[in-house]
Amino acid sequence: MIEVTIQLLGFIAAALLLIIGIAGMVFLDNIIKKIIAFTLLSDGVNILLVAIGYIEGGVVPILLPGMSTVEFTTHAALVFPVGIVLTNIVIGVSTTAILVALAIMLYRRYGTLKASVVLKGERR
């Protein structure tokens, strides 16, 4: 019997978001929809990371007055996976910005947002 913990629920949510995101990025035709799918994918990664850093009955890794250091060491959320989330957010922002900029310029050129039309190979 699998014990249902908050961590496991986080993993399930993350996996669902990842799969929806990857499916959207690969199969959807509209460039903007693809970008939205990417944000889902990126959020899935974030939830996965937060869930890995989760500790049963833990606290936020910020020292508050009156805490004991030993207690903090064992109970604070794992700071490494939680910290990586910040990086992933930043990367998500920059990738989204670039994708949106490219979508704008390609829309101006071709007048459509369909990836199958815009990205059609040209005869060189």
Binding site: G53, P61, L63, P81
Partner: peptide
Amino acid sequence: PGVSQIYNSLAHLVAPNNI
């Protein structure tokens, strides 16, 4: 937990916000 626990054990030496 690995390296995160070592970081948490040294948190009080630097800034209170360990993140």
